[in-house]
Design a protein around this nucleic acid. Structure first.
Lengths: 370, 370
DNA sequence: TTGAAAGCGTTACCAT
DNA sequence: ATGGTAACGCTTTCAA
């Protein structure tokens, strides 16, 4: 591997000093370097396909243009994976590189991951979680600009800004979709009771019922977890051996996997979807919701948007908004945060809520007449 | 953020020169530095919690201890995500850091991702794909030590080593599992005809039939893709309206998602699994195969093992096998490659095959008597 | 307008 | 045995 061209090589070729090269290539040429020399320098740089050595730059500037991403389950998940994808898009467009470390749900590793990244002199940190949850922020994160995605600072007095999905609104709008289709007998298979997201979605469901002046049937609500079997058994309990007049006409699921379980149960009981039963998912998991039979109506989590918003906020903190540095790649002014992403009400709020998106497919339909 | 201690700080505190600090802390102290000074230096280092600045080290050594990982779908996938997880484990245990870039199936971005990483002076590169496939290796990868995981060099004369699953054997052993349960009427819902993996798995299926001196029913084999709907419609074609005596007693699926489709079809047709029909998956996708109703028997892809093997091979190329450098973290001699991972026959082979693992659960059972 | 020199934190070499 | 110095590649300040 022949060694790359350095600023000195460019200087020699252009017949000037290293300093001149540096000035010109950083836009500080005018008023310091003769126009003619500037041209020669620029030409030489192109000919040698010169680009400054990022390592030397880092050492000199004390800034690495690297953003560390710590995740409880990064590289293994269709969920926070997409968050990271969104964050990476933004970083790349502004000449930053992301370094991701996965701690695989082992909180003890958080601290060491953060220290490793800090040791490498990352300019900022993002912590990403697979599911919404309160986070014991690793102390190291307070030493550089940091943002949380899909989780929030669990400290008595929160220090870091966070981007999270608007789960309450998601639950409410999912419910409203079913109400608008004429359903009144809507069961809810909530996720895990101990999770942060599930209770919020349930709250949204209750809000929708309250607004519609309908009562929630508490016996139709259960915490079945996030998996296929939970959805299956939950649905069997609601449907098996229950007369058509007595059973729900729609089931809202904690997520798409639970919805698979419900569909399985419906098939086994000879119920047609959505004819006899509407099924509503949550997450819009790709290759699942869109390829189910029938395809699933679901509430899409704004994963990429959250990642992008988190990175945008972080970079704004690091180098001011949209100062995109002409770093070669396609850019434009910092990726827009997207419609609907909004600050929460609190004073100097640290919280940004990203809206979920209703995706209507085949698994929901008008309620059958009774 | 108060600045970190440097070697100079340590030197001052210990009353010696920077060189002495460097020598001692790199184990080259004996014979060069007085025992007494060594002690003072080490004590000072601890007191200041000194650790060398990796950036300066990189500049000096021309080695960054960073490994670049390029993926066609990294951060978004439960599949190559696990490969990266395995690779990262090994890297971390040897004091390396991985930086991953996802090109989201856009081959045009491969080159630029590789160049970005090379620009950052990574010591080596790994290219990871979500599904097995031939890869047009980005030219930049030839400039540093590089390894391919789950893909192989598509050039006329391959230059890079690769780690891939032994798909033929996987297909054969999956089939054998069903044969051993007494099944003779085994249908095969292969994946996408255009993919690299599917034909190999089919080859394994044929091998198993040949060894058992049975004929393959060609009309029971079809390319239904990798999704739930493909599995569903494929199964309906095989089962719907077909008399029990005429239909297969087992269906092998291209992957677990297709198996979901088959289970859905079976439920709709009132067939019990595995009583009336055995279903075999592939991949052992987590939260799917293990939580289906019934849970899926499947062939697990050796994702983490492949990633670990790829990284082990790469690091061996970079700094010699198992030279784990005492980099603080828990280590031990380079992660073992795991039983069964083996070199292919060719001379100076570039190919390493990782075995898949049969996971027996509830969806397969003895063939019904006829 | 230009070039020389210092400094970022290391390590390796070479005098002392 | 020890410590000064050059070099890694860059930017910035200062002097010519």
């Amino acid at each position: 591997m022949q060694r790359k061209a350095t600023a000195l090589d460019v200087a020699k070729r252009a017949g000037v000093s290293r300093s001149a090269v540096s000035l010109v290539l950083n836009g500080r040429g005018d008023g310091n370097v003769a126009k003619e020399s500037q041209d020669r320098i620029r030409r030489a740089a192109v000919e040698l396909s010169y680009s400054p050595n990022p390592i030397a730059l880092s050492l000199r500037n004390q800034r690495t243009r690297m953003i560390g991403i710590v995740s409880d389950h990064v590289v293994v998940s269709a969920f926070d994976g997409n968050i990271i994808g969104g964050a990476d898009d933004v970083a790349r467009s502004r000449g930053f590189v992301t370094v991701a470390m996965d701690t695989e749900f082992d909180a003890a590793r958080d601290e060491s991951a953060v220290e490793t990244l800090l040791d490498r002199q990352v300019d900022g940190l993002i912590y990403v979680t697979e599911g919404l949850k309160p986070l014991d922020v690793p102390p190291g994160m307070l030493r550089v600009p940091s943002v949380l995605a899909n989780c929030y600072d669990n400290a008595p007095v929160p220090a870091l800004p966070h981007m999270i999905p608007d789960e309450v609104r998601g639950g409410r709008e999912a419910t409203n979709h079913l109400l608008e289709l004429g359903h009144r007998d809507i069961a809810l298979l909530a996720g895990a009771a101990g999770s942060a997201a599930a209770p919020l979605r349930v709250a949204g469901y209750r809000e929708a019922f309250a607004e519609a002046r309908l009562d929630v049937r508490e016996d139709w609500m259960s915490w079945v977890g996030w998996d296929i079997d939970g959805g299956f058994h939950g649905a069997m309990k609601l449907l098996d051996g229950v007369s058509p007049a007595e059973r729900p006409t729609a089931i809202m699921c904690a997520n798409d996997r639970a919805a698979i379980g419900v569909a399985l149960a419906a098939a086994r009981l000879g119920l047609s979807v959505p004819g006899d039963l509407s099924i509503m998912g949550y997450d819009d998991e790709s290759h699942v919701a869109d390829t189910m039979v029938p395809t699933l109506t679901t509430m899409a989590l704004p994963l990429r948007e959250m990642g992008a918003a988190a990175m945008t906020a972080l970079l704004a903190q690091i180098e001011g908004p949209g100062k995109s540095e002409g770093h070669g790649k396609s850019e434009g002014p910092g990726i827009p945060v997207g419609p609907g992403i909004s600050e929460n009400g609190r004073a100097a709020s640290l919280e940004t809520l990203a809206p979920c998106r209703l995706v209507i497919r085949e698994s929901t339909g008008p309620a059958a007449h009774r």
